[in-house]
């Protein structure tokens, strides 16, 4: 492969057999980008609160609308997924859990925890609301 320097490049993704852990890996990145977009709503929420009661009521009304709730549900899951998956990455960074079995178990924990925590947060949230 030509990259100008003559140094070897690793082969591209297509040569590998698809594993579900690959989907978890790209999902970490996708949820990260999604959460970055979600910071726009966080900013609106805080700026509206600082601007006064009317603008805050508008922001709260949007969050409570059908579209707002759908977005909030998606961001809740994305947040918990990115949090759990991020902790999995930190475990790897510390040098643990590289064995295939451990890595696959970690993936299952991340997927399960993100779904479980999302449902739990919404049960509590709807009960409080």
């Amino acid at each position: 492969m030509a990259n100008g320097s003559g140094r070897p490049l690793s082969p591209h993704l297509q040569v590998y057999k698809f594993e579900w852990t690959m989907a978890l890996s790209i999902t970490h990145r996708i949820t990260g980008v999604g959460l970055a977009v979600g910071t726009l709503l966080l900013t609106w929420w805080l700026v509206a609160a600082a601007a006064g009661p009317e603008s805050f009521a508008r922001a709260q009304k949007f969050i409570g609308s059908g579209l707002g709730l759908l977005l909030m549900f998606g961001w809740t899951w994305a947040l918990f997924y990115h949090l759990a998956s991020g902790i999995r990455h930190l475990v790897w960074d510390a040098g643990y859990s590289f064995e295939l079995k451990e890595a696959e178990l970690g993936g299952k924990i991340v997927a399960g925890a993100s779904l479980g925590l999302t449902i739990l947060a919404w049960i509590i949230g709807l009960a409080v609301w």
């Binding site: 969050i63 409570g64 930190l90 949230g125």
Partner: peptide, 24 residues
């Protein structure tokens, strides 16, 4: 990332406690 672990947990609880809250 490490700093965001406790901050995110605090944030989620905070948001849940203020769902539909009025300005006051």
């Amino acid at each position: 990332a490490i700093a965001l672990v406790p901050l995110t947990i605090w944030f989620v609880f905070g948001v849940i406690r203020h769902l539909g809250a009025d300005h006051a």
